[in-house]
Design a protein around this nucleic acid. Structure first.
Length: 107
DNA sequence: AAGGTGACCGGCC
DNA sequence: TGGCCGGCCACCT
């Protein structure tokens, strides 16, 4: 079964617990391609094809909702995070490191 | 097949 | 984390 790079990213993102967030680089590193963090973001872009991908739990290393612009609405991504108990102010996650979750491949 | 692109990251000022 | 620059890697046309 040749899963594409995207599938790997999806698997990890889908395994992100609620009230937890992670960064693109972390996912990329978990996949073994830490330098392909951009690819992770790209995978999220394609995640629109899936509905089980909580892309709102994936942010950049600064804890900024970099992809909120792509989420459809403007504050939708922020609303989702706040709905899960994650405080977000001005597109930035509060206590980002506290909510940070290290992605691990659990297949 | 080649080039452009991108929801990034790390280093430096 | 404030801003800029280079690298990196897979996907799309």
């Amino acid at each position: 079964m040749e899963e594409n790079f995207f599938e790997r990213v999806y698997e990890i993102v889908k395994h992100i617990p609620e009230v937890k967030v992670t960064s693109y680089g972390a996912i990329a590193k978990a996949l073994g391609t830490a330098r392909s963090a951009r690819m992770v973001g790209w995978a999220m872009n394609a995640s629109h094809n899936r509905d089980d991908i909580p892309a709102h739990r994936v942010v950049n290393r600064k804890g900024l909702l970099s992809g909120k612009h792509h989420f459809g609405g403007t504050n939708l991504m922020q609303q989702l995070l706040e709905n899960e108990g994650i405080k977000v102010i001005d597109n930035q996650i509060i206590d980002f490191e506290k909510h940070f979750w290290e992605p691990e491949i659990t297949l």
